[in-house]
């Protein structure tokens, strides 16, 4: 050992470099994928947003800012932005509040009942995309839905009387929560499992009942996970596409405008009129919104504590 330490001084740098090298080798495949499928497409979209397309062939920088101006001037731009804002205002706070409430209630008394319920809540997570929408359309049709009596009592005797533009933010929230909540309930429940039992025992001895424990101890301790959920839900919901697309155009032409969400508008720019420049500009604007919100929340809460 001693001889090694004495000898270690001269080749110190090479050894450090060797460690760097092995670290880089571990990370290299991931880094390449990140370049190709994360950063690359983002940068390429940026490039294309200034390009003009002639017969599907891009002429880079030929468009200047025209694609952005085109997007802003499109008559559907403000409409779709307004729609997505309404959807976010309804879906994000409601989604988070209900998920946290359910996780806390389940965790008050863990046991067989709680674990069966957790499974019931989770399984709809398997239903997404077209299958989710298919099921949603059936559930919103009073004639065949198990919720039919409820829908009629609320004054919606038919599918068409229920699906109206003004109600779409709530309807998409109800659909999205059905499929998305289970995963987050499980994650928040997992976070609650991590709350130290010693702290809870101490609180119990001090006369803290189950409700006070939930409110004053468990809730503050899972705050990082709630922020995490906020960031991911916000970034995901900004991109709403499948529900309005299938409901409005592809499947049943319900009472849903053809381009209801910004992502649909970007899709329409690309594949209806072949203007990939405008589509890229639109996608980038949406990315900036998602990233901006995430950045703001991360800075404001000090989440994602990276150890330097």
């Amino acid at each position: 050992m001693t001889s090694r330490i004495v000898k270690a001084s001269p080749p110190r740098f090479p050894r450090k470099w060797r460690q760097y090298l092995s670290a880089y080798l571990f990370i290299l495949p991931y880094f390449l994928f990140m370049l190709a499928f994360g950063i690359g497409p983002g940068l390429y979209a940026f490039l294309i947003s200034f390009a003009k397309f002639k017969m599907g062939i891009p002429q880079y920088f030929a468009a200047g800012l025209n694609n952005y101006i085109g997007v802003f001037k499109d008559y559907r731009f403000l409409f779709t932005i307004g729609n997505i804002l309404k959807f976010l205002v309804v879906s994000v706070p409601l989604g988070i509040a209900l998920v946290v409430l359910i996780a806390l209630l389940l965790h008050m008394r863990p046991g067989r009942f709680a674990s069966i319920l957790r499974t019931v809540y989770f399984i709809p997570g398997a239903v997404t995309g077209p299958a989710l929408l298919l099921l949603a359309i059936f559930m919103f049709s009073p004639a065949m839905s198990p919720f039919g009596p409820l829908l009629r009592a609320m004054g919606y005797p038919s599918f068409d009387s229920l699906i109206a533009p003004a109600r779409l933010p709530v309807i998409f929230t109800v659909i999205g929560f059905f499929s998305g909540a289970g995963m987050w309930i499980v994650i928040q429940y997992g976070a609650l499992q991590g709350v130290s039992t010693e702290v809870l025992e101490a609180a119990k001895i001090d006369g803290c009942n189950a409700w006070q424990q939930a409110l004053y101890i468990k809730f503050p301790l899972i705050r990082p996970y709630i922020i995490y959920q906020f960031i991911l839900i916000f970034a995901g919901n900004v991109q709403l596409f499948v529900e309005p697309q299938l409901m409005g155009t592809t499947w049943i032409a319900a009472n849903v405008p053809q381009q209801w969400s910004p992502n649909q508008l970007a899709y329409s720019f690309a594949f209806d009129i072949g203007n990939f420049g405008m589509a890229a500009a639109m996608s980038l604007l949406m990315l900036i919104v998602g990233l901006g919100a995430a950045y703001f929340v991360i800075r404001w809460t000090g989440f994602f504590d990276i150890k330097a």
Binding site: M34, G42, N263, A294
Partner: peptide, 21 residues
């Protein structure tokens, strides 16, 4: 940081640029 940022970009936002790439 790049991991966090790319994690926040939902796949659907990348689909159009990805298509072109």
């Amino acid at each position: 940081w790049l991991t966090l940022i790319t994690m926040l970009l939902p796949p659907s936002a990348m689909v159009l640029p990805l298509f072109l790439e």
